[in-house]
Design a protein around this nucleic acid. Structure first.
Lengths: 209, 209
DNA sequence: TCGCTTACTGATTGGTCAATTAGTATATAC
DNA sequence: GTATATACTAATTGACCAATCAGTAAGCGA
């Protein structure tokens, strides 16, 4: 009977998007029902259709708008901590630390679960991912290319540099955190970053190790 | 009306498992229907229940038995190509090449899609993955630990060595192949392996670069 | 205070799907 | 050549779920 709520929450739409992101990540698109999402957001299933035209659109909005929230953090990864300076690993330590801290964050992990689960089978999800991360990628490539042009890091394809540095972080996030492989549980973020800095990075810097 | 088939295929169960793996990978567990799987296997949906007690059990069997097929290949990765010998990158080149070739294989990618999609939300899938890959992991760790004990590679936690070498491969498989990020499409397996050998590996070998 | 808009709820519908059941043609054992 | 087990099919059932719809209480501008 209660139609319009007496003390309305300030951001119902945001609440729905948050609930949807969590449930889509935890149970998958099909297994997460409108009723569950609505209940988690404090409304009924029918009310979802007041804010979104379909479950599909709600899904896309949840992924897209949460990814958009990450954009400033991602593009700022290369802007803070200073430029790579002659042979020093400090700017890279800062970059890797903040990148890893970001991707192990709770919200990020929810988004990553969805991207890994639905991305490979949904072109529109891949497109959202590509559009939203393109800016971050586009700021990282000149950062690396510039360091190469200045002779601070060896002339290696910046995309390879990216994969070499980011790969170990991704491996830890997927294997340790998402798949919870027992043998990797004791790996700390610090040890991982240190290892990349001590093992991989020297192979990239022009002054060797 | 046609009940028992006139010329029965030799491995109906295997056909079902193959069809199930493909459809579960392409569409996800919920979106892949019994009817589709059955049709792809050349039978009706009801006949699935002659071979498997439920859709869940079929799913588990498809993942588990296909993973089991990979086991010999995975454990042999460290046995072929020779042991890591003094400062040479050759054994590692062979190891990385074969590992990457394996994981970019068609069947492997189907399994990987399922593991990445369902693993994070299903403990039983993580368990199957852990059980089946534990043997490969258990053969890799002494391989690396032995090389450390012999002083051929630097004393770095073998789990970190694993993550540093495997991470870039995983990054390529996930970002380039599964998420099809445009900027990474031109990355070849060869260039990737070369980069790991030239950049990351020298940081691990005792004689430096 | 009236009328309109906003922000919902409860009930219903149509469709889909996993699972069950009863039946049947083929092969195999004796 | 009959009996029994094997390997299925067609049809049905029950449950669930996305989406729709009619209604309704609260805010709001004139």
């Amino acid at each position: 009977m209660a139609a319009r709520p007496k003390n309305p929450p300030p951001d119902r739409r945001g609440d729905i998007l948050d609930a949807a992101l969590r449930l889509f990540a935890e149970k998958g698109y099909d297994a997460a029902t409108n009723a569950e999402i609505a209940r988690a957001a404090g409304i009924t299933a029918a009310a979802l259709y007041y804010y979104f035209p379909s479950k599909e659109e709600l899904f896309r909005a949840a992924v897209s708008e949460h990814l958009a929230q990450f954009l400033p953090t991602l593009t700022n990864l290369t802007r803070q901590g200073g430029p790579p300076d002659g042979g020093s690993q400090e700017p890279f330590r800062s970059l890797l630390q903040r990148a890893l801290a970001f991707f192990t964050g709770e919200k990020s992990q929810l988004v990553l679960k969805i991207i890994l689960a639905e991305g490979p089978r949904r072109p529109e999800i891949r497109q959202i991912w590509n559009e939203q991360t393109a800016a971050a990628f586009a700021s990282l490539m000149p950062y690396l290319a510039g360091a190469i042009a200045d002779g601070r890091i060896r002339p290696v394809d910046p995309r390879l540099v990216f994969v070499l540095l980011q790969g170990p972080l991704m491996s830890a996030i997927v294997l340790r955190d998402l798949l919870q492989i027992p043998a990797l549980q004791e790996l700390t973020d610090e040890a991982l970053v240190d290892a990349v800095l001590e093992v991989t990075l020297p192979g990239l810097l022009t002054d060797g190790r």
